[in-house]
Design a binder for these strands. Sequence first.
DNA 1: TTTAATTCCTATTGACTTGATAGAGATTAA
DNA 2: TTAATCTCTATCAAGTCAATAGGAATTAAA
Lengths: 144, 144
Amino acid sequence: MISQKARYALRALLYLAAKAGDHPVQIGEIAEAEKLPRKFLEQILAELKKPGIVRSQRGRSGGYSLGRPAKDISFADVLRVTDGPLALSPCVSVMAYRKCDDCFEESVCAIRKALLAARDATAQILESRNLAMAAAQLKRSGAI
Amino acid sequence: MISQKARYALRALLYLAAKAGDHPVQIGEIAEAEKLPRKFLEQILAELKKPGIVRSQRGRSGGYSLGRPAKDISFADVLRVTDGPLALSPCVSVMAYRKCDDCFEESVCAIRKALLAARDATAQILESRNLAMAAAQLKRSGAI
DNA sequence: TTTAATTCCTATTGACTTGATAGAGATTAA
DNA sequence: TTAATCTCTATCAAGTCAATAGGAATTAAA
């Protein structure tokens, strides 16, 4: 299951993607519109800022905007920030590989082989879905 | 990521699948062979017993064996017991559907659509891999 | 120059989950 | 009868999750 943090992040980002104006959006507006806990959202946006998924403008009339085009921000990008690797085991993570603590011999591990296939399938989907697609979907269904 | 419990469960089950004798295997043997914490393994096998993944024989010369043919125990079956639903959100879980707490309108949720596709991809893989395949793999690679 | 509005940073907290450990009870073959 | 096993319940420390809090830094506008 994804974390609450991930849900909040995705909703905030979708809001930014749907708005897509020229000037930044204030955190208060996002929190109110999407009914997100404001202070928690601050932390989340701070994390999203590090890898450049959002960028911020400080001071009066500051706010947040997407760090790059919505079509270049995938669900995988977001979930990796909020929830860590997509993989079901560190030994099959592409972005954050690590040997399992008690692994005997990775190359013959039957568990690993199944988890690797699962990772590839999940990543293929989540990397192919981006914020632009999701925002367009929302518009089509009249939710915005 | 899968839990430690899931790893232990899979290793114990693979041990049973590879052994595949007629009489049950004692928990002490499994724990020692696979280097698993014995008392923790007890709890795990108890959980696997409820849905019939393993069955047990009590008393002297008792032990555990697979509850059905290894080819009929998928990775998905095991992970659902140890780690809960495969889905990334309750609203896309097939085996344990639940509406998200703060969901506005499920049918137009853009997040849900992506997570649903991810679930299907993951489930397709994990339901198609079973203990018999994994055990055969181990034998082929000479690990047993 | 001041002020007000905003993001930024760090600490804290309660509830829950994880990964065990412990010990006694129930069952059964020898 | 006994010894070897599974069964059940309780407990625990450490970590994670989902927030909340308060003030510092920054900037546009008055």
